[in-house]
C-alpha cells in the first residue's frame, strides 16, 4: 500500500481533506461544481438510454457542459471548437445515422463472457488506484501560474499550430481526407453502383442514337446497350 506502481504520493494521507475541498466554496468552485455535475449526469444518461435519440441529445448536453469547462480553463478557442465541431457537426452525423438505423434494443446491457468482464473490473480498480496517486496531490496545491492575456485565443493557438506544429497539422488534414474517402467507400452500395453504371451506358447509347440517325448505327448501338444488360 506504500507505493502504487511507482507513482509518488499514492496515499491520501499527505494532504488534508479540508484543504483539498476548500476551493469549492469560491465562486469559481460553484461554477465548476454545476458544470461538472451536469456533465457527469448527462453522460450517465447518455450511456443508459434505450432510445438512441435521447442518448444523442444528452451527449450534446454533455459536450456543451464540457465547452463551458474548457472556457473556465482559459481555452476559449477550444471551447468554441467543441461547440462547433462536436455539438454541431459530429452530433448531426450521429442523428442522421440514428434516422437510418433506428432500432430499439431488446437488452440494455449484454453480460456475455463474464470472466473477461471480471478481468476488466480488476483492471479498472487498479487503474483507479494508480490514477488517484497521480491526480490527488500530496500537499495542498499551490496557486496556478499567471497567464498572458492571449493564452488560449485563436491567435496564439494558431500561431503555435502553424509555426511549431505544422507537420502534425498537415498530417491530420491527410487523415481527414482518408476518412472522407473511407467513409464513402465503406458505406456505398455495390448493387446501386452497378445499376448506376448500366443506366449511364443506356444514356450514352440514347445520345448516340439521337446524334447519328442512320439505321446501321442504330442497330449497333442497340447491340451494345443490350450487352450492358439494360432494357429498352
Amino acid at each position: 500500500m506504500a507505493d502504487v506502481a511507482g507513482t509518488p504520493g499514492g496515499n491520501l494521507g499527505g494532504a488534508n481533506v479540508s484543504d483539498l475541498l476548500a476551493p469549492l466554496a469560491s465562486g469559481e468552485g460553484v461554477v465548476f461544481l454545476i458544470l461538472a455535475l451536469g456533465v457527469v449526469a448527462m453522460s450517465v444518461v447518455c450511456m443508459t438510454r434505450r432510445n438512441p435519440v435521447s442518448a444523442v441529445m444528452s451527449l450534446v448536453a454533455t459536450f456543451f457542459g464540457l465547452a463551458g469547462l474548457y472556457a473556465t480553463l482559459s481555452a476559449h478557442f477550444l471551447a468554441v471548437l467543441q461547440v462547433l465541431v462536436y455539438a454541431g457537426a459530429i452530433m448531426v452525423l450521429f442523428i442522421f445515422v440514428v434516422m437510418i438505423v433506428n432500432r430499439e434494443e431488446s437488452t440494455l446491457v449484454s453480460l456475455r463472457g463474464i470472466p473477461t468482464r471480471l478481468l476488466g473490473v480488476f483492471a479498472g480498480v487498479y487503474m483507479i488506484r494508480v490514477f488517484a496517486g497521480i491526480a490527488i496531490p500530496a500537499q495542498a496545491p499551490g496557486p496556478l501560474p499567471a497567464l498572458s492575456d492571449s493564452f488560449g485565443t485563436v491567435a496564439s493557438v494558431g500561431d503555435m499550430l502553424f509555426r511549431q506544429d505544422l507537420f502534425p497539422f498537415e498530417a491530420i488534414s491527410l487523415l481527414l481526407l482518408v476518412a472522407i474517402v473511407g467513409g464513402v467507400v465503406v458505406s456505398r452500395s455495390a448493387r446501386k453502383e452497378s445499376d448506376a453504371v448500366i443506366a449511364a451506358d443506356k444514356r450514352i447509347a440514347i445520345s448516340h442514337l439521337s446524334s447519328h440517325d442512320s439505321p446501321a448505327e442504330l442497330s449497333e448501338v442497340e447491340e451494345t446497350s443490350a450487352a450492358a444488360g439494360g432494357h429498352h
Binding site: 493557438v157 503555435m160 487523415l175 472522407i180 467513409g183
Partner: peptide, 26 residues
C-alpha cells in the same frame, strides 16, 4: 499551450473516427 494543439488534433481525429465508424455501422 502545447496541450491546446493536442486537443485540436484530437477533435479532428474524433471527427474522422466518427465518420468512418458510422459508415461501417451503416
Amino acid at each position: 499551450e502545447k496541450g491546446h494543439v493536442f486537443a485540436f488534433l484530437i477533435i479532428a481525429l474524433a471527427a474522422a473516427e466518427a465518420a468512418v465508424g458510422l459508415a461501417i455501422l451503416v
